[in-house]
Structure formats: C-alpha cells, structure tokens
Design a protein around this nucleic acid. Structure first.
Lengths: 159, 159
DNA sequence: TCGTTTCGCTACACACGCGTAGCGTAGACT
DNA sequence: AGTCTACGCTACGCGTGTGTAGCGAAACGA
C-alpha cells in the first residue's frame, strides 16, 4: 500500500493531461515509478483505478456562513470560479462529464460528487429563504442552477 | 466521394456512442460498410475525420423574431433544451468540450461552432436592448451566459 | 531477528488499431 | 468503345496496451 498515493497522483496527472481514455495503466506505471504488476495487484483494471483516483480528489467546499445570502453566494461562487481555472477540478470536470455520459460507473461517481458539492450551496440558499431573503416558495435547486450554470458555461463554452 | 456521407454518419454515431477516443477508423469502416482503405484515401487520420464529421453536423438555430425579447428568448431556449436532450448535440457536446481541453484543433472547432450558435442569441438580446427592454449598458454576452448556462448545468451536472 | 507483506523486474501470449501496398472491379463520363 | 475515377479486398509490418506468471529483493512488524 506504500505505492497507492504515488499511483493515484500520477493517474490524476495523466487524466488531466491526456484524458481518461488515454490514461493507460502502462503510462501510469511509467509516470509514477511504480511497477505495472504492482498496480494490477491493487486495482482490477483501468476504470477502477481512475474512479478511485477521482473519488479521492474532489472535495466539498467550506460553508461560508456570513449571515447574509448574497455574501455567502459570492464567496462560494468566487471559490468555484477559481477552482474551475486552477484546481484539479479544472481539467477533471469535462473528462468526468464525458465519461459519465457513457459509463454507468462514472455516471454514479459524477452524481455522488455533484450532490456532495451541492449540499453546502443548497444549505446556504435554504438559509436565505428562511431569513426571508428569497420568497418562501423558492426551490433552492433551481437557484443553484441559475447561479452556478453561467460560471460553467463561461468556462467551457463561451470563453 | 459516394462514400463520404456514409462515413460521416457512422463517425457521428460512434462518437456519440463511445466517445472520440474510442472511435477508431477501423470501427468506422465496419459500421459504415466502407472499406478502411477508402477512408484513408479521403481523410489523413482519425482527428481529421472526426473534426470533419462534427463540423458538418452542428447548425445555427433559426432566429425567432417575435418582436419581443422575452418571447424570442423563450423560443431559443426551449429549442436549446430540446437539442440538449434529443439532437445529435446531446452526445456530441461533452465529447467536443473534453477534446477541446487538450487538442488545439478541436478547441478551434469548438470556438467556431459556439460563436456561430451564439450569433443569433446575441442578436436577439441586442435587439431587446435597442427596444429598451434591457438597460442600454447591458452586455449581451453576459446575458447569454446567464440564460444558457443553467440549461447546460442542469443537463450535465445537476440531475 | 525472523517471518510476512509489499514491491520490482522480466517475460510472455494476446488483441487491437495504424497506415500502406498491391491488385482487381464497377460505374461514370466522353 | 475506351478511359478514368472511386471503391473493395487481402495482406502485411509495426507499435502499444492488456493481464498474468514466476522469481527475487526490500521493507515492515512483532
């Protein structure tokens, strides 16, 4: 298990650099300096390794809790905008979305990771509704799409 | 050149089904019923074929021109929402975005296709500004991100 | 210290896709 | 009729990745 961290790090590197399909176990072995046979001892195949690597990387954002909906959202969205350009998510996200479109295992991971990231945002919005900063009939999930969608769109479509 | 249409159709099929990387020239030959050598006679390599196939498929949406900004936008966005679920763009878009992240040729195609699709939307918004339906200092590109972003986000991230 | 686990390395058979060469044939054009 | 172009087909050599077996060495834990 000493090799685990090195392998996962190399895997993320390569996925970000070349995409999921081109991240072969052989290339991970070379990049990580870990023998190919050692990798096969810990992971069944390429998808298993990549799923593991991605799952170990994406984290939930911290809850701002400024006491004010607008400030909470600004803080969350600025953090998100930064992550979309610098963080590991920057290169991982489109690869994960693309894989999720075709492989059920990646789809499940994608949903799980997304709902984790959404938890904080939804809580922030719900608090805002509770404080009367938004109408009581507001659906937090709709607000979430409205505020985060444009950031994604600008990052990956309109430039 | 009689084979061209069959090859391009099979290519789009396979890209939508398995992704860009897995769409080999050999699989296109099998799916299309066109000999592998014939494909190599018309396209230099796999990227060239896929770029050609994608470029031949994505079209500009029609300009609604209802005379009213809100109705124009609703019509455009309903059309977009439909295209994101049924049309060929549904499976093509994430593959194209992912490829654009790494391959400059795909990035150029992505930008070109996006700006074509945006042209109509930007015109609609600019007309709205001209009619005083939006403040004169409005940036149409910002409005575009705000209205289309959530659709993309809902399609590929939240549910 | 001694045993157990983890790892590295070589070697291998296998499958797949690439890209090309060479030859033959059907259809279109004149 | 003859010519020319587009196409099909077989057969390659080559590279690369898969996944496994077998053996030895190094690091770890009690």
């Amino acid at each position: 298990m000493r090799s685990r961290a090195a392998v996962l790090a190399a895997t993320l590197d390569l996925v970000a650099e070349r995409g999921i399909a081109a991240t072969t176990i052989e290339s991970v072995a070379e990049r990580s300096g870990v023998a190919k046979t050692t990798i096969y001892r810990q992971w069944a195949d390429q998808p298993a390794l990549i799923l593991d690597a991605i799952a170990t990387t994406l984290h939930e954002p911290p809850d701002p809790s400024t006491g004010n909906l607008r400030d909470d959202l600004v803080q969350l969205l600025v953090g998100l905008a930064r992550a979309l350009h610098d963080g590991p998510a920057a290169a991982l996200m489109p690869a994960l979305i693309e894989a999720a479109e075709r492989d059920p295992a990646f789809a499940a991971l994608h949903r799980r990771e997304a709902s984790e990231r959404h938890r904080v945002v939804l809580a922030v919005i719900a608090r805002g509704v509770g404080r009367g900063e938004l109408p009581p009939e507001t659906d937090p999930a709709e607000v979430l799409d409205l505020v985060t969608g444009p950031l994604f769109y600008r990052r990956w479509v309109s430039a």
